[in-house]
């Protein structure tokens, strides 16, 4: 009798929303605490120390790391370069993604094939293999220069000039517009065709309906892509690491690469943690600015 009651009670608890919720959410909660929260707090603590690997005594140095940051020429340079990279590559990437997604909404039997074609660079772009190809494409005697030479133009020393070296990397990032494109495509599919019909009856051409219907309807998705791509661009590491190693003269020293170098090459862990935190703050500000301004351009469907 008693066990029955306990069983019933247990069942009730087991099937309660609280229990179900936490059972299902458990992996995330566990992962969040172990792989995000604890590391973040540890990182913050290290940012105020002179911590380096192998060094058993960790000394608290107060804000010295952050003070050093502001006087570190390479840090300032890499911050500037990363911002340049983000501000050029992200808008270009989104414009391409949106245009191509829009062009490909046209229903044809080839649609799936076309979309795959444009998705291929995103599929492979993050790989070492493609980074190495890219390095070869822009090498002194690489493909790009041989095209230029064939056309009778002078060759360009892409990786020898710090003003130019960033552009192959930007191009590589823009080239991988596929994943944003897919998300746009999914969004475009959900715009009700009646809007377009109504517009056509009103005599709007394709361009007008793009501006007046597509863009506003897609604006929440544009916002989403913008935020995600901006974050991703800030963290870009592999390309610079493999293709240029940050050179020439730190002309492609992406922020993430400099953090990596400080942490693992020069073994200044505390300093690198401070840099990571600085980056977190910068990104928070930028994301916040994006969200704030988004109120004026993101169109929300009424009644939802």
């Amino acid at each position: 009798m008693k066990t029955e009651v306990i069983k019933a009670k247990a069942r009730k608890i087991f099937y309660s929303n609280e229990m179900v919720g936490y059972v299902f959410a458990f992996p995330f909660i566990f992962g969040f605490i172990c792989f995000s929260l604890i590391p973040i707090i540890t990182s913050l603590r290290y940012a105020f120390t002179d911590f380096s690997m192998g060094n058993k005594t960790i000394e608290f140095v107060g804000g010295a790391n952050f003070k050093q940051l502001l006087g570190d020429e390479i840090f300032l340079k890499s911050l500037g370069i990363t911002l340049k990279y983000v501000f050029i590559s992200v808008p270009l990437k989104l414009v391409f993604a949106l245009l191509v997604a829009f062009v490909l909404t046209r229903k044809t039997r080839m649609q799936v094939l076309y979309r795959s074609l444009y998705y291929v660079p995103s599929l492979v772009g993050g790989s070492i293999a493609v980074a190495l190809v890219w390095k070869q494409l822009f090498a002194r005697k690489g493909l790009f220069n041989s095209v230029l030479a064939n056309m009778g133009l002078g060759t360009i020393n892409w990786f020898g000039d710090q003003k130019l070296a960033l552009y192959p990397l930007i191009l590589m990032s823009v080239w991988q517009f596929g994943s944003s494109m897919i998300i746009f495509a999914a969004g475009l599919k959900e715009i009700s065709p009646t809007y377009y019909e109504a517009a056509r009856i009103d005599g709007a051409n394709t361009f007008q309906s793009f501006v007046n219907i597509t863009l506003p309807c897609l604006s929440p998705i544009i916002l989403y892509n913008l935020v995600m791509q901006t974050i991703q661009a800030f963290m870009s590491f592999t390309q610079a690491f493999v293709i240029t190693a940050g050179g020439p003269d730190n002309g492609t020293m992406m922020y993430a690469l400099y953090v990596y170098n400080q942490a693992f090459k020069y073994n200044h862990m505390g300093y690198a943690c401070a840099m990571s935190w600085f980056m977190l703050i910068v990104m928070c500000i930028i994301t916040l600015v994006i969200f704030k301004t988004s109120r004026s351009w993101v169109f929300t469907e009424s009644g939802d």
Partner: peptide
């Protein structure tokens, strides 16, 4: 070699 070539 300049920086670009040296990288190779």
């Amino acid at each position: 070699p300049d920086a670009g070539a040296e990288m190779e």
